[in-house]
Amino acid sequence: MTGLWVALATLALGAAIGVVRLRTDGRVGDGEPGPLLGPGELGAELGERATLVQFSTAFCQPCRATRRVLADVSALVPGVAHVEIDAESRLDLVRRLDVMRTPTVFVLDARGAVVRRASGQPTKAAVLHSLAQVVSRDSSHKPDDM
C-alpha cells in the first residue's frame, strides 16, 4: 500500500517538476553580476559588443541545438562572439558561475561582465532580445544598428 502512495507522489512530483521546467527552460534572466571574464578565462577573445558563452557536456541532448542557435545569432549580429566551453574541463569556471546543468548560456557585455543567463536551450528570439538590451545599455554603440 505504501508503494502505491510512493508511486503516486513520485508521478505528481514529476509532473510538477516537468511543468516548471517547461516554463523556465531556456528563459533568459538577469545574471549575477560577477567579476569580469576575459580571454584568459574563456580561452577565446571577447566579442566587440557582446559574447555568448555556452557551457556544454558530452552527456547533454539540447547542447547541440543550443550551439546552432547561438552560432546563428553570432553570425547575424555583428560584434557578437559565441564561445562554447566544455564544462567538465573547466570546473573552476563552472563553480565560479554556479553552473548546475548544461546547456547554461551567459550573455557578457563588451567588458566581459555577465549580464544575462539562461539554463536550458534558449530560443533564437530570446537570445536576440537579450542581446538588444545588453548592447543598447552600452552607450558607446548605437542600439539601432542591431
Binding site: T10, G14, G18, L22, T57, F59, C60, A87, R101, T102
Partner: peptide
C-alpha cells in the same frame, strides 16, 4: 529512477544527463 523515467517519457527531459555535471562538480 521512476521520477527520471517519467520526466523523460512525459516531457523529454533527461534528469540522468543533468546528474553528470553535478557528479563532476
Amino acid at each position: 529512477a521512476l521520477l527520471a523515467a517519467f520526466l523523460n517519457a512525459a516531457f523529454g527531459f533527461c534528469l540522468g544527463c543533468d546528474m553528470y555535471l553535478l557528479i563532476r562538480r
